[in-house]
Structure formats: C-alpha cells, structure tokens
Write a protein that binds this DNA or RNA. Structure first.
Length: 449
DNA sequence: TCTGGGGTCCTAGGACCC
DNA sequence: TCTGGGGTCCTAGGACCC
C-alpha cells in the first residue's frame, strides 16, 4: 500500500460516477403506503424501539437528531405530533429492491452500497446529457415505486456524494446535481463543511477544526503528507478524491468479507444458557446468510458486551475466535464453533446487553480446500442436504419455522420469561409501533376498507 | 425500565522466527 | 560496562460508513 495503489484520473477525464440515494429512506417507505403522512414530521426507530434512525425533513426541522434515544423523546413526540414507527425491515428491503432494479435497468454498471444507496459507473455515457439522465431516472423511480431519490454525479465517488447532498438540500437542483467542471468543483468544495465530507467523521472533524480546517476546500489545500501523517491512507484517499482523483474503486467494495448477526437484548441476560441460546440463534442466521451467497467461512467469532450506559453495573466485554480446519457453512459446525467461543468468553456475574456472531475468512463454497485429516465427505454432504432442506422450508414458510434446538433452549422456563418460551427470537425484539408488511404478507395487503 | 445493527479498513504492538 | 534487527503474523482497538 502506498501511493502506487492509487489510480490517477484527472477531472477532465470522461469517467463519471452517480450516486442514487433514497431520501430519508425508511420514512419514505412508510409514506408510500401512508400518503397522508406527507408534510408531517415522521421518525423511524431502531430495533427494540431504541433510538431514532430515520427522520423526515419536518422532523429534522424540529431538531430531532439521528441516534437520539426514544425514551427521552417520547414525551416530546406526542406534544409535537411526531408520527413514530418501529422499524419494518421486511417492507424496506422489498421497496428498496424495486428501486435498485430500476437503477440497474438504467445504468451501465451498478454497485449497491447500502440498503438505500447505489453507485453507478457511467463509463461510456460521455455523450449523454447526464443531468437529464439523472432527472429522468429520478422521475421514473418516483413513478414506479413512490420512492423519492436524489442523484449526485461527479468524477469521483466522494465528489458524487457531495453532489447528492447539494441535490437534496437546494430545491433548484430538482434532486439531481452534477459536478463536471473544475469551476463547479471549486465552488462546491468552498461551501461544504468539513464534517459533511464522506470519510470524515466526528473524531477527524474535531482534529481538523483545531488546526483551522472548516471546509472541504480548506482540507484540499493541506499538504498531502500532512494528511497522511495526521491520519492514515484512508483519509489521504478522501483528500485525493476531493481533488478529483478517482481512487476508491468499486471492485474492491464488492465481495462481502465478513458476515455479522448481532442484537441488543430488550432485557439484560445473566444466565449462560440464555446467552448461549441467543448466540446459537445469531450463528444460525449468519450461517444461513453465508449459504445464501454460496460461501464458506474459516473463522467464527463471538462477542458479548454489558450495557455501557449502565455505569452503576460492572462492565465486561470481549470477543473470541474459533478457526475451522476446513472452511464450512453448515449450521451445526458454525453453532458448535460459536458455542466454544462463548464458553471461553462467558464470565458469571455480569448483565449482558448485546452479543453477536461474526463469520470471516470467507471464500466461495465451490473452492473449498479440504483438510486431509478432518474431511468426511459423507458427513459433509449430509449436513449440506439438511441445511438445504431447512433453508427451503424457512424460505417458503417464514424464517424460523424450523430451527436447531440450541436456538430455543432454556434451562428454567419461568413464567416471567416470555421471550424464550415463545420460541421465535423475533418475538423477543420490541417493535410496538410497526407498520404492516404491505408487500410481503397476504394478511397485511392494503385494502380499501 | 428504556440508548441499533451490519459492515469496512488501518494501525500499533506483541509474539515469534532467523 | 556491554543485551540486534528485520520480517511476518496475529489480534485488539479505533476510526469510518449507512
């Protein structure tokens, strides 16, 4: 790694990128089926109704910040008539998939960067009026899905992100902004606060502001070496991108290198078996995701944490990793490894608030290097067929129709511990204000009465 | 009572080897 | 008295993103 790693592209180079970004994504998803909420302040909460993760423009105008805990705002919300939803990932996943399909149909190469954003490589479109292309795409997406998007177009992904901010913020752009000349880039950088730059977070902003850097333009004027020595090569790449050099390649973002399933618990867990039940559940979900992308993994990690906000309680947290001799994706194998990790990790006397399972060292399932001493092909194939059957049943009948026993096991099913007794882990997550799954469940389909 | 979840990458420092 | 140095691998921790 070093300077040789960068691909240098000048601003006048015809390569352009677009970022297509859903406006206030989760809120907009809710509004597709509740048009009466247009113009109203609306927020969407995280799992367990913990904190605010999405806000409508009206909610932002009221000063509601992302990440604020809900229990502190509840009173406020009812006074200000803010409409509140629990998160409904079934709905958001399905609606954003429709948006992404339209983007893919209208751009030469598309990389989905997150649930609500996609980068397009517009190579080969240099003769197009790209601003008009963006305006047309936005109109098409709005018409067919009901989702408002903003589009930023520029010679690097970092500049495209900046353009999309302008596209959202100033109505004059009509949700599509293009930075295609040195002059536009110059102006855009000078009016752009440093903390809004893609890749510059809270810590970096603080350090930059203490040396007088306020705008993206100021940052660009720093000597390259200064950026490098103050931060790292990642920040240096951001610096290059703002100056118009294309150096964050789409290819290096494509393959998933780790798969994680983690949750906070609505109540603290103190008992080993309860924690193990949850960890086994996360392991099974992770293994399912792994199989879905036709991969295997060679490392299984588990992490646990107490509630960092409860300064009155003793704190403990950590992670442990189990390496597999032969890369695998069988639920049985992943669960066994995760259980081993947890056994080493668990300390009695702590109240656990969060845990998770991370699968890494991921490779394609068809390229498995089998270990001579550990490989039993009959056993391997049997597990594989079992998992296939379970995955199919869960796909057709709803997730967690069939689970491995360890995912539900509890030593002391007591009357006040509904979460384990009810079986499905899903039910142990609080989501009192969830909207219907309009597009994925027959019983929730919208009807006129 | 109540504070998200799923990812990425880099760096520093220790262990170990020759 | 005087106690190498460079390379590699691994892990924990910390930054960033949405």
């Amino acid at each position: 790694m070093g300077q040789g790693h960068f691909h240098h592209q000048r601003l006048e180079n015809p390569i352009m990128y677009a970022i297509v970004d859903c406006d206030n994504c989760y809120v907009s998803c809710e509004r597709v089926f509740r048009p009466d909420l247009n113009g109203q302040p609306v927020v969407v909460l995280s799992n367990n109704d913990g904190c605010v993760v999405a806000r409508s423009n009206e909610a932002k105008a009221l000063g509601i910040k992302a990440g604020m805990p809900y229990y502190q705002l509840r009173q406020h919300f009812s006074e200000q008539q803010v409409v509140v939803f629990s998160s409904n990932y079934e709905l958001y996943g399905e609606l954003t998939a429709r948006v992404m399909k339209l983007v893919s149909d209208n751009a030469p190469a598309v990389y989905r960067y997150s649930i609500d954003e996609a980068f397009c490589d517009l190579r080969g479109m240099q003769l197009w009026d790209l601003r008009q292309w963006g305006l047309d795409l936005r109109a098409k997406i709005l018409k067919y899905t009901g989702m408002p998007v903003s589009i930023g177009i520029a010679p690097t992904k970092t500049l495209a992100k900046m353009a999309s901010h302008y596209a959202k913020k100033f109505p004059g752009y009509r949700h599509c902004c293009i930075i295609d000349t040195g002059d536009k880039r110059h102006k855009a950088l000078q009016h752009y606060p440093i903390d809004e730059v893609w890749g510059i977070g809270r810590q970096y902003t603080e350090r930059l502001q203490t040396i007088g850097i306020q705008t993206a333009w100021d940052f660009c004027q720093m000597p390259r070496q200064r950026v490098r020595s103050m931060f790292n090569v990642v920040a240096e790449r951001t610096w290059c991108e703002l100056r118009g050099e294309d150096c964050i390649s789409i290819e290096e973002l494509v393959a998933k290198q780790s798969i994680c399933t983690s949750r906070s618990f609505p109540h603290n867990l103190t008992d080993y078996v309860d924690l193990r039940t949850s960890v086994c559940h996360f392991a099974a979900r992770s293994a399912e995701k792994l199989r879905k992308q036709h991969s295997v993994c060679a490392s299984v990690s588990v992490f646990v944490d107490t509630n960092r906000f409860r300064t009155d309680l003793p704190q403990y947290g950590g992670s442990d990793t189990e390496h597999l001799l032969t890369p695998d994706n069988a639920s049985q194998v992943i669960l066994a490894a995760a259980t081993q990790c947890l056994q080493r990790l668990f300390r009695k006397g702590f109240a656990y608030k969060r845990a998770g399972v991370i699968l890494s060292d991921i490779t394609g399932a068809d390229t498995v290097q089998t270990n001579l001493f550990d490989y039993d092909s009959t056993l391997y194939q049997r597990r594989h067929r079992l998992d296939q059957a379970i995955d199919r049943i869960n796909r057709l009948n709803g997730s967690e129709t069939v689970v491995i026993a360890a995912q539900q096991y509890a030593t002391k099913p007591s009357a006040d511990d509904k979460t384990i007794q009810q079986g499905k882990f899903r039910d142990s997550i609080r989501h009192d204000l969830r909207s219907p799954a309009y597009t994925t469940r027959w019983c929730d389909i919208l009807s006129s009465n």
